[in-house]
């Protein structure tokens, strides 16, 4: 299989220990919700995170976008052709929840890195191989489940992304789900929500 090259997706514009926000390189082109991203810095751990929130709005937070369509001809994509400056006054930002890092010895660590991401550094979308490598174990899900702001949606999305990266998908899905079931042993309602979101229709027959 040809080695994938990590694709640059944005630039860090705010960061804390548990998450960072980046501006997407282009309008409406943030990495998908639940995708794995990373920030590489020299002599620092590579930070791994899950895209947990995407938002598009005006550069100036005090100015709101207004409706510009003129049906039937000027709708949707035609609006941007009509008013090309929109691409300069609007922007897409995304937030990523930090789920682990690669330490100085090159080992995957499913816990928070010692430093937050540095501002203005690049955010890359992880390749399939990287996702496979990072998600061989499921402990990173514990952080998502424990996080008070964490949602079942994000956990489910992370599992879906991870499953897609693995070749033995049914087995991997079962093992991941069983890990989540142990983490949510005392909260069947949350567990049920997650299981409903990760199992395909066929599996739920």
């Amino acid at each position: 299989m040809q080695q994938q090259v990590a694709e640059r997706a944005g630039e860090v514009i705010a960061a804390s220990t548990t998450e960072f926000t980046a501006e997407a390189l282009e309008l409406h082109s943030a990495p998908p919700f639940g995708s794995f991203v990373k920030v590489i810095e020299p002599k620092r751990p590579t930070i791994y995170a899950l895209v947990s929130y995407v938002e598009t709005g005006g550069l100036d937070p005090t100015r709101h976008a207004v409706a510009r369509s003129r049906p039937p001809s000027i709708v949707d994509e035609e609006i941007y052709v009509q008013w090309p400056e929109l691409r300069d006054v609007l922007r897409t930002v995304f937030t990523a929840r930090v789920i682990g890092h690669i330490d100085a010895r090159g080992a995957v660590r499913h816990w928070l890195p010692p430093f937050p991401a540095s501002l203005h550094f690049s955010v890359f979308v992880c390749t399939t191989e990287e996702i496979q490598w990072f998600t061989r174990r499921h402990d990173y899900l514990a952080g998502l489940i424990r996080d008070p702001s964490g949602t079942e949606e994000l956990t489910a999305a992370a599992i879906r992304t991870a499953v897609a990266a693995h070749s033995d998908q049914p087995d991997y899905l079962l093992q991941a789900a069983r890990s989540v079931a142990r983490m949510l042993a005392s909260d069947y309602i949350r567990l049920h929500l997650i299981l409903q979101s990760i199992a395909s229709e066929e599996l739920r027959q």
């Binding site: 079962l174 079931a181 199992a199």
Partner: peptide
Amino acid sequence: DLFTRQVLSGTA
């Protein structure tokens, strides 16, 4: 469903 039963078996 079978999937959920498999997941819960031995966990919950």
